[in-house]
Structures are given as structure tokens and as C-alpha cells.
Amino acid sequence: MDIHEVLKYLPHRYPFLLVDRVLSCEPGKTISALKNVTINEPFFSGHFPHHPVMPGVLIIEALAQAAALLTLKTANLQTDENSVYYFVGIDRARFKKPVLPGDQLILRATILRERIGIWKYSVKAEVDGRVVTEAELMCTIRSKE
């Protein structure tokens, strides 16, 4: 999926869209996506001015967005104005190495299970083949009403 197809599925836009491309997707199982981290990211001016590091919470958000794409492809849905994809839980989050400008984050999500509309994933973010962040995430799709 190129950025144009990603935009059809995710409601996020600048500066909060954190997936640039989907490298591979096996609906019902797994996804690999890419986030190019550039010095032009708005958060780098304050985190930290003399040593820019991508905030861990934004790495987790990028992983949740990749997981959302996997869920939407699996369920054959596109996000519309009547529904929202919510991040509802996180377990076992670990941050192993800082993510810096110039890094390419490879975002991996694997479905662990889906029960009563709650999806659970194992997620990892890698830079140059090394895991920088890992966690288990839970998300759901709900109507806005």
C-alpha cells in the first residue's frame, strides 16, 4: 500500500499520520509498514532540541496505526466519518533503543486474537533489523454515536 491507499484507510493526517507505506500485509495475520523519521518532524524541536529523539509514545502510536491498517484490511473495512478506531490498552511495552532522525522504522503487527470486537496484537518496531520497541496492544472499532 502506498501513502494514497493508507490515507483511504486511516483517518489520521499531518502531523499525526505515522505510517508512510505498507510493505506487506497478510489479512488476518500480520502487517509490516514503514515510517521514515525525518528531522522535520514537529516533535523534534522540543524532544530534545540538542539531541532529537522520537518520543516512545509516538512509536507506540505508529505501531497502533499499523495494527489499525491490519484490522481494517482483515475486516475489509475503511474508516469513515461514522466510526473511530480506538487504542484501548497496552501491555509489556519496552523501549530498547532511541529512534533518531534519519532512521527508518519498520512497524510489525501480528494479530494474537479478536474477541467481542477487541483486537489484540503483538507489535515490534525495528531500525536496521534491531528491535527498538515492542508491546502488546489492544484496539477496537466503534461507532461515533
Score class of each variant (00 low, 15 high):
P15V: 00
L107R: 12
R108V: 02
Q65V: 06
K29C: 06
A68K: 02
I39Q: 13
S32C: 11
I31D: 04
L105W: 11
I90M: 15
A93M: 12
P49W: 03
M54T: 00
E26A: 07
I90W: 03
D80Y: 04
S32G: 01
I59T: 12
A67F: 09
A68I: 07
L107C: 08
T74Q: 08
L100K: 14
S45R: 13
T71G: 05
L70H: 06
K35S: 09
D91T: 01
F43W: 15
T79V: 09
L105H: 13
R92F: 03
F48G: 11
Y85P: 01
Q104S: 12
H50I: 06
P49Y: 04
L63H: 09
I111E: 00
G46M: 06
D103Q: 10
L107Q: 13
Q65A: 11
L69I: 15
L63T: 10
K97N: 13
G102S: 10
L58S: 06
L63W: 05
F16W: 13
F48L: 08
N36F: 00
G28S: 09
P98V: 10
N82C: 02
D91H: 08
T30W: 05
L70R: 09
K97Q: 15
D103H: 14
Q104R: 15
I39S: 14
E26V: 14
L70S: 04
A67G: 14
D20V: 05
Y14L: 05
L34D: 02
V37R: 02
L105R: 13
N36S: 14
F87D: 03
Y14P: 10
F87W: 07
V53N: 11
Y86G: 03
I90F: 03
T79D: 02
F44T: 12
A33K: 08
G56Y: 07
A109E: 01
E26M: 02
R94Q: 13
E81C: 00
V22S: 09
P55H: 11
I39L: 15
L34Q: 14
K35L: 10
L63Q: 06
G89D: 04
A75N: 03
P55C: 12
A64P: 12
I39K: 06
I106S: 01
L77G: 04
A64I: 03
I39V: 14
T110A: 09
C25A: 08
L70T: 05
A109N: 08
K73D: 00
V37F: 10
T79F: 06
N36Q: 13
V22L: 11
A93T: 12
Q78M: 13
T71L: 13
V53L: 14
H51Y: 14
P98S: 08
L100C: 09
G89P: 05
L72F: 09
Y14D: 10
F43N: 05
H51C: 11
